[in-house]
Design a protein around this nucleic acid. Sequence first.
DNA 1: CCGTCCGTTTGGAAAACACTGAACGTTGGG
DNA 2: CCCAACGTTCAGTGTTTTCCAAACGGACGG
Lengths: 157, 157
Amino acid sequence: METVDEADLTRVADAFAARLAQSGLPRTTGRLLGWLLVCDPPSQSTTDLVEGLRISKASITTGMQFLVGTGLVERVHLRGSRQAHYRADTKRWADLMASKLDAIRAMRTLADEGLAAMGADSARGTRLRDVRDLYGYFEQGYADLVRGWTEMKEERR
Amino acid sequence: METVDEADLTRVADAFAARLAQSGLPRTTGRLLGWLLVCDPPSQSTTDLVEGLRISKASITTGMQFLVGTGLVERVHLRGSRQAHYRADTKRWADLMASKLDAIRAMRTLADEGLAAMGADSARGTRLRDVRDLYGYFEQGYADLVRGWTEMKEERR
DNA sequence: CCGTCCGTTTGGAAAACACTGAACGTTGGG
DNA sequence: CCCAACGTTCAGTGTTTTCCAAACGGACGG
């Protein structure tokens, strides 16, 4: 059993962080999340994280507040230790994908409201109708996708 | 033919801007894009925009550089006018939706690379495998969605 | 009741960002 | 040849964000 190079793992965590940063997540928060996906053991204490990622305690607190808030990470209490431990909850990543449906729906709704604000049949509405049709299509299809995933997970139970 | 209240339209444009701002788009750029979806006439000169949106010339230049760069807006030259005119190109919004596929794929790739960096069969890889499966599913399904849209548009031609 | 070990809050430094007015270069009309 | 109009670039300002060190407060062991 070959041991895994820790430097490789931090690189993986940082790669995740870089990608997540493009979605607006702060760098340190992304590093926390990425690290929790690859670390060993899967549950890490604050001091573990400070040591492994060279991030201040303060940043860990704020980052974890967000991650625990979204459910992507859960706090666990390990017996025998008074420290807080954190563990990635991969089941919740599906919620993250599902939440994008809200963004799509919001855009479709916006287009509908815009159309209502003008004469819905006027030539001026052509552009908004295009936008609404596009988002309407994806709203429908993406909702099916999300449903498909959850159903697949349920029947595997 | 009832005339449309211009204040209502700026409100629609601003609503779009607010939504797009949540995706990281600067406020003024979002207002430009929203306005071009509802304005009349559909093609607007820089001075039209300065007047209608109370945005500085400079911001219009930089905002339009981005919007034209993504293809969401196109520059048109109206005969008889030396001014640059901008028009929303709603066909390109589909590209925007398609580009999200890249983000999904990037995440799936990241997970795969992470798995490769560790022993792929180790128990440690469970979390990354979960993530990869999720993104793999959505990568596949979303690609089908995008394809469905383009095919639908092509056969309507 | 004291000292130690936690995590959180606070205050602030540094950097990134959005937006603007003004200066600039270019182009067409007179 | 000059003037006016137009878009771009530049430099500066105010705001927001990210991150940390230090102060703080609570809980447990002795």
